[in-house]
Design a protein around this nucleic acid. Structure first.
Lengths: 192, 192
DNA sequence: TATATACTTGAGTGATCGCTCAAGAAACCC
DNA sequence: GGGTTTCTTGAGCGATCACTCAAGTATATA
C-alpha cells in the first residue's frame, strides 16, 4: 500500500557540498540561508532531509573523516607506510579540490571546544582515529625496518599529526612557503 | 572651560578581559551580551568606550600580539636565542593563566579568513611579525655558533612557528601528551 | 552652590538567527 | 485515472544579533 515519491536531490552529494561550506566557513560562519542557497533546498526540505544544522554538520564531519582515513590508507597501500607518511604533507596542501587547506576537524574543534559543543567532541574523536591511523603506519614502518624500532610509534604519530595541523594552517597564509615546511616534515621522517 | 567626568572603569583592564573572552570563544562565539556581562558595561557605555565589537576585537589582538612578542624577547634576553626557542614550546602550553592553549592569532585567522574579514588580515600581520621575531632569534643563534650557519633562518622560523601552532592546538586535546611534542620540538632545535 | 560636561543606564531598533508548518505539487500503486 | 503518500514551497515563528539613543546621574570647574 506504499505510494512514495523520491526526493529530487542526491543526499550524498548534498552532504559533500555542505561539508565544503562548513569546512570553509565554520559552524557559526555558516547560516541556514547559506546552506539553503548552495544546496538549493527550501527550509522545509532541509529539515525533512537532515533534521537540523548540527545534524548535517555531524554528517559532514563523518564524511570528511572517512575520506581522510581512506586516502591515507590507500596511499600506504600504494607507497608503503614510510613513503606514505612522507608524501602526505605535500599532498594535503596541494589538494586543489579542497575549499581550504586547514583541517576541518581542527577548525571545528578549535571553534566549538570552548562551548562544550557535541560537534567538538565528535571532531576530537575523529582526530584520535586519524592519529591511530598514523601510529599504525609508523608501527609497520618499524616492522619493515624503514624506521628505527627504538621510537614510540604513538608518540611519533602525535608529533606527526601536530605538525600536519600546523602545516595545514600555515598553508592558508600568504607569507609562508608551505611547500618548504612540508618538505622539512618529510625529511624529519627520514631521520627516524 | 572643560568639565569632564572620568570613566568608572580601567580601559586596559577591560581590553585584557575582553581578550581572554574572544581568545576562548572566538569572534562569532562571543556576543555583545557576553561582553556586557563580563565587562560589566551596559551597551551605551560599551559603544562609547570602544565603538564596536570589531574595534574592541582589534584592540585585543593588538594587546595579545604585543604581549607575545615581549615575552619571547624577554626570554631571549634571559636565556639567549637558542635556549629561548627551545623553552618557548613548553612554556606556552604550560601557561595556566591563559584561557586556552591555542594561539588567538591562529584561531582568529582560521575563523575569519574565509569571510575576508579585516580582523583576519590583522591577525595574519601579527603572525608575520612573530615569525620575523623567531627568524631574528635563529639568526642570532647562528651568529653565536649555537646553530649551524647553513640553514635559512626564515625557513627555520616558518617551520618553527608552524610547529608551535600545531603544538598549541594539540595541547587542547585530552588524548595528546603535548609535553612530549614540546620536548620533541625543542630537541629538533638541538639538531640544527 | 550653580552649571556645564561626560558617563551610565536600559528600553528598544531593524536584521538575522535556526527552525516550523500548513498548503500545494508531484509521483507512486491500484 | 483515482487515491494516497511524500516531497516541496515559502510565509512566518520567537529568539537573539549588533547596535542606538534619549533620559538620568555623577563629577568636574567656576
Amino acid at each position: 500500500m506504499l505510494m512514495p515519491r523520491k526526493p529530487a536531490y542526491d543526499r550524498d552529494a548534498l552532504i559533500a557540498k555542505a561539508r565544503d561550506i562548513f569546512w570553509r566557513q565554520g559552524w557559526a560562519g555558516t547560516s541556514l540561508k547559506d546552506l539553503e542557497r548552495e544546496l538549493k533546498l527550501k527550509p522545509g526540505s532541509f529539515y525533512a532531509a537532515f533534521g537540523s544544522k548540527d545534524a548535517l554538520y555531524a554528517l559532514t564531519l563523518e564524511s570528511y573523516a572517512n575520506e581522510g582515513v581512506a586516502r591515507i590508507k590507500a596511499l600506504a597501500e600504494k607507497l608503503g607506510p614510510k613513503e606514505a607518511l612522507k608524501a602526505q604533507p605535500r599532498l594535503v596542501i596541494e589538494a586543489v579540490e579542497n575549499p581550504t587547506k586547514a583541517c576541518m576537524l581542527a577548525k571545528t574543534f578549535a571553534e566549538l571546544q570552548a562551548k562544550d559543543h557535541d560537534l567538538a567532541d565528535q571532531a576530537a574523536r575523529h582526530m584520535t582515529e586519524m592519529k591511530a591511523c598514523f601510529a599504525e603506519l609508523f608501527r609497520s614502518a618499524q616492522e619493515t625496518g624503514e624506521i628505527r624500532a627504538d621510537h614510540d610509534p604513538d608518540r611519533l604519530a602525535a608529533r606527526y599529526q601536530s605538525d600536519i595541523l600546523g602545516l595545514r594552517l600555515s598553508a592558508e597564509r600568504k607569507d609562508v612557503d608551505a611547500l618548504e615546511i612540508a618538505a622539512d616534515i618529510a625529511s624529519d621522517i627520514d631521520r627516524l
